[in-house]
């Protein structure tokens, strides 16, 4: 009922753990699989190991969740080992998220990570928290297309490009990555934001600025997915603020084929995946749907 096929990969349900959330240790992938995820995205991988920003890197207020982890990861060599190990532990499709400082680095990462045989490669060209060090490739159609092309040229694995909502118009960028050969699009990454502690007059995050995620950004994500769906023919992994089954249905109707879920694990623990899946099934039964495909893009009919 809620299973689907994308790029000839079988997903038992549409909920994919979004990048940056818990996708660190191979053994923890077992726990995630048991919690009911349909797919697992790794934390974004760079060529060299990165420590990321100093704490505080995350917090949450009543309306939104903020993070500026700074793309901490063990580097490509250790990450390849981790993905290989994880593939022994779980049957759930694995999406390897990569990010580079230059177009060429993206190409090299694509080539290297292919060796670990992830099911999908996701190129993260949209992290809002490392602007000092990295160009935001997702901010321009040309740069996004250049990254897409080189990642595609270096692998035979399906490639999705993760886009940022922190742009004036996401449509030409989506179009550009489709034309450059992307197999799919993940949208959206976090929204750029900031909080200041009024007693100390200090930004709370060490990085000052961070990415806002969680319930509050759901309407922004729905709108972006809706617009991208209108613009391109390639499938979309709709991501941003999904915390309930009803949110999931809405995002599917906006045009998503799979759903990225991350911050929801903060609100409800990782058991949220099972809960949301049950809620999707309930909604489908109550509304006369037997195949999740019938919901995808339903808002456009």
């Amino acid at each position: 009922m809620i299973d689907s096929n994308l790029f000839n990969i079988k997903f038992k349900n549409p909920l994919v753990l979004a990048s940056g959330i818990l996708g660190v240790s191979a053994e923890y992938f077992k726990t995630l699989e048991k919690s009911g995820v349909g797919g697992i995205t790794t934390k974004s991988i760079s060529l060299k190991p990165r420590k990321g920003h100093k704490n505080p890197i995350m917090f949450c207020d009543d309306h939104g969740f903020m993070n500026a982890v700074g793309l901490s990861n063990a580097g490509i060599d250790k990450s390849i080992e981790m993905i290989k190990k994880a593939k022994q532990f779980v049957k759930t499709p694995i999406i390897a998220s990569i990010f580079g400082g230059t177009v060429d680095e993206f190409g090299e990462l694509s080539k290297l990570v292919t060796e670990a045989k992830p099911d999908i490669i996701e190129a993260n060209i949209s992290c809002p928290n490392v602007k000092k060090e990295f160009k935001l490739f997702g901010a321009s159609a040309e740069a996004a297309a250049a990254v897409t092309k080189i990642v595609k040229d270096n692998t035979n694995i399906p490639v999705v490009i993760k886009l940022t909502p922190n742009v004036t118009d996401i449509k030409p960028i989506a179009k550009a990555v489709e034309e450059a050969g992307a197999d799919g699009i993940t949208a959206i990454n976090t929204l750029s934001g900031m909080r200041i502690d009024v007693n100390t007059k200090m930004p709370i995050l060490t990085n000052k600025f961070g990415g806002v995620s969680g319930k509050g950004i759901f309407p922004v994500a729905v709108k972006n997915v809706y617009e991208i769906y209108k613009t391109v023919k390639i499938p979309i992994i709709g991501t941003g603020g999904i915390t309930t089954g009803k949110d999931a249905i809405e995002m599917l109707m906006a045009g998503a084929s799979l759903l990225g879920v991350g911050t929801a694990a903060y609100y409800g623990g990782i058991k949220v995946f099972t809960k949301v899946n049950l809620e999707i099934e309930d909604w489908m039964k109550n509304n006369g749907y037997s195949n999740i495909k019938d919901l995808m893009g339903a808002a456009h009919e």
Partner: peptide, 21 residues
Amino acid sequence: YMGCGFGICGGCSINHKLVCM
């Protein structure tokens, strides 16, 4: 070592468990 303390960053994993949660 802890980043978030509430089960999101994954920094404190020990095998298949999280020390913070």
